[in-house]
Simulated assay, not measured.
Amino acid sequence: MSEIADEISTTPHKLPAKGTDRSPKSARILIAVATYNEIENLPIFVERLVDTLPEVDLLVIDDGSPDGTGDWCEDQGQINPRIRCLHRKGKPGLGSAIIAAMQYAVENDYDVMVNLDADLSHPPEKIPELLEAWSGSEGEHTVVIGSRYVSGGGITGWPLKRHFMSRAINLYTRLLLGLPMKDCSGSFRAYPVALLRQIDFDSFLSYGYSFFEEILFHLRTNGARFVEVPFVFVERQYGSSKINMRKAMIAVATIFRLGLGRVLPF
């Protein structure tokens, strides 16, 4: 991917000089959310984020939401310089949106990037725990996963079928890719930017939902450690989920290709 995005709304403000202290209070932190038609959720999300972590930067990657999500974010960026909106044309995929955010984090010399959903299923109030887990371990090499499947984690609002599908894709991913964590498919994570610098994003097979499994696979290959922090996933109240059966089957096929390549390198 040669460019971060089609358009970015604001020039990044000048950040303080980079130091050696990896504590959350001194680290450069980027919060990244990908949006498409989240006008009902994003204002609530931003309010809760600012109340929790007023000193972090927020990057919204919006794929041309017709409901005005990108316009709202643009207006907020004029009020709060820590909010930036990256506008993209079309719908190139959720994974490609997160890659764009990761490239942005690398190019702007952040220490850690936290990715979560803007639909309020991932509580912004939980971000400090992810950052503490990152800074309290080998920060430059530790990926922190907000996990639904460790003790203390959970899911509310899902039908039985979706619980089964999620459990199945996680087991499938662990077996094929040899990953150690219990929650491989969630997007609530803190990534050390030092590790992201080592990733060749042009080599990715997935720019859709299986990106979240694939990035773990590449990070582990590059020496990542993993810590899982429990949280309770709450199904969205506003708007609709973007995943469907076709996207789910593409994700299954992509993970299979990655697993096959792990055994029989191409």
Score class of each variant (00 low, 15 high):
Ser2Leu: 11
Glu3Gln: 09
Glu3Lys: 05
Ile4Val: 07
Ile4Trp: 07
Glu7Asn: 02
Glu7Met: 00
Pro12Tyr: 02
Pro12Glu: 05
His13Tyr: 06
His13Phe: 05
Pro16Val: 00
Pro16Cys: 00
Gly19Asp: 00
Arg22Tyr: 01
Ser23Tyr: 00
Pro24Ala: 00
Pro24Asp: 02
Ser26Pro: 00
Ser26Lys: 03
Ile29Trp: 01
Leu30His: 10
Ala32Tyr: 04
Ala32Gly: 13
Ala34Arg: 08
Thr35Ala: 09
Tyr36His: 14
Tyr36Glu: 02
Asn37Ile: 03
Glu40Asn: 11
Pro43Trp: 01
Phe45Arg: 10
Val46His: 03
Asp51His: 01
Thr52Glu: 04
Thr52Ala: 03
Pro54Ile: 01
Leu59Thr: 14
Val60Arg: 06
Asp62Pro: 03
Asp62Ala: 05
Ser65Cys: 05
Pro66Asn: 00
Gly68Asp: 04
Trp72Thr: 13
Cys73Val: 15
Cys73Ser: 13
Gln76Thr: 04
Gly77Arg: 10
Gln78Gly: 14
Ile79Pro: 04
Ile79Asn: 08
Asn80Asp: 15
Arg84Leu: 15
Arg88Cys: 05
Lys89Met: 00
Pro92Ser: 03
Gly95Thr: 14
Gly95Ile: 09
Ile98Pro: 05
Ile98Thr: 08
Ala100Phe: 09
Ala101Pro: 08
Ala101Ile: 10
Ala105Met: 12
Val106Tyr: 11
Asn108Asp: 09
Asp109Ser: 05
Val112Asp: 03
Val114Leu: 09
Val114Asp: 15
Val114Ser: 10
Asn115Ala: 12
Leu116Asp: 13
Asp117Tyr: 03
Ala118Asn: 02
Leu120Ser: 04
Leu120Ala: 06
His122Asp: 13
Glu125Asp: 01
Glu125Leu: 02
Pro128Val: 03
Glu129Ala: 15
Leu130Lys: 04
Leu131Arg: 01
Ala133Ser: 02
Trp134Ile: 01
Ser137His: 09
Glu138Tyr: 07
Glu138Met: 00
Gly139Lys: 01
His141Val: 01
His141Gln: 11
Val144Gly: 01
Gly146Asp: 02
Ser147Met: 03
Tyr149Lys: 13
Ser151Ile: 13
Trp158Ala: 14
Arg167His: 08
Ala168Ile: 06
Thr173Ser: 15
Leu175Asp: 06
Gly178Ala: 04
Leu179Asp: 14
Met181Glu: 07
Lys182His: 12
Cys184Asp: 06
Gly186Lys: 08
Gly186Ile: 07
Ser187Trp: 10
Arg189Lys: 15
Ala190His: 08
Ala194Leu: 05
Leu195Arg: 07
Ile199His: 14
Ile199Tyr: 04
Asp200Trp: 11
Asp200Pro: 05
Phe201Asp: 13
Leu205Ala: 09
Gly208Gln: 14
Tyr209Lys: 14
Phe212Val: 10
Glu213Asp: 11
Glu214Thr: 08
Leu216Pro: 10
Leu219His: 03
Leu219Asn: 05
Gly223Ser: 06
Gly223Cys: 12
Glu228Asn: 02
Val229Gln: 06
Val229Ile: 02
Pro230Trp: 05
Pro230Gly: 03
Pro230Val: 02
Arg236Ile: 08
Gln237Arg: 14
Tyr238Met: 03
Gly239Ile: 11
Ser241Ile: 09
Lys242Met: 08
Arg246Pro: 04
Lys247Ile: 15
Ala248Glu: 09
Ala248Phe: 11
Met249Gln: 10
Met249Asn: 11
Val252Arg: 12
Ala253Thr: 12
Thr254Gly: 08
Ile255Lys: 05
Phe256Val: 10
Leu258Tyr: 13
Leu260His: 12
Arg262Met: 06
Val263Gln: 11
Leu264Met: 14
Phe266Thr: 15
